[in-house]
Amino acid sequence: MTVVSVSMPDELLERIDAFAEEHGYTGRSEVVREAARNLLGEFDDEGLEGRDLMGLVTVIFDYEATDIEQRLMHLRHDHDDLVVSHVHNHVGDHYCMELFILEGDLEDISAFVGQVRATQEILSVDYSVTPVDQVGRLV
């Protein structure tokens, strides 16, 4: 097995170590391998390929972070054909939440989520994807 060096904040490493111990993992490498497999498999659902999808992407960040809101707005405008709606809201004392409502195919939604996740200083990214042809059945 190849050994890989990864940089991460001490706080995250401490959380990984605690998680490994609490959940019976053999160590941090096992946790990171499982997390990588899960991340890579998130959009690997053959049932979603070739279908029109709706996506909700929720982003949380500290509003005191330098220019994160501006970077998210650039990303939003770069994907104007994908983002059908966008909501900005204040959460708690100094956090902001961005909610992006998307409509497109799996590849485009996956690329957007990947670019949001790659934006530095974001605290949390959560998303869901639903085929548009299933919306009537969900109500």
Rank of each mutant, 00 (worst) to 15 (best):
L12C: 03
D81P: 05
N89K: 11
N89P: 05
A36I: 13
E69R: 11
D80K: 09
T26Q: 12
Y25A: 04
A36K: 06
F61C: 10
R71C: 06
V129A: 03
H94F: 05
E107K: 12
G47Q: 02
Y127H: 13
G114P: 01
V31Q: 09
L53I: 05
Y127K: 09
A111S: 10
Y127Q: 09
I109D: 01
H94A: 14
F19E: 02
L48V: 06
Y25L: 05
L12N: 04
R117Y: 09
E21R: 14
R15P: 04
E21T: 08
D81S: 13
V4L: 14
E107Y: 05
E22H: 00
V31L: 09
N38C: 04
R117H: 09
Y63E: 12
L75W: 01
S29W: 10
E103H: 13
E46Q: 07
V83I: 14
I60E: 10
Y25F: 15
I16D: 01
Y95W: 13
L12V: 14
L72C: 00
V59Q: 04
A35D: 09
I16A: 07
I68D: 04
L13S: 10
D80C: 00
I109F: 06
V91D: 08
S128A: 11
L106D: 06
N89Q: 14
H86S: 15
E21M: 04
R37Q: 11
R33M: 10
L82I: 08
L102H: 03
A111R: 13
T26H: 10
H94S: 11
G24P: 03
E64S: 14
C96V: 13
D67F: 04
E30M: 12
M73Q: 13
I101H: 07
V135I: 12
V59E: 08
G114S: 15
G55C: 03
Q70H: 14
V4Y: 07
G50Q: 01
R117N: 12
I122T: 01
G41Y: 00
M97A: 12
D52Y: 02
V132N: 07
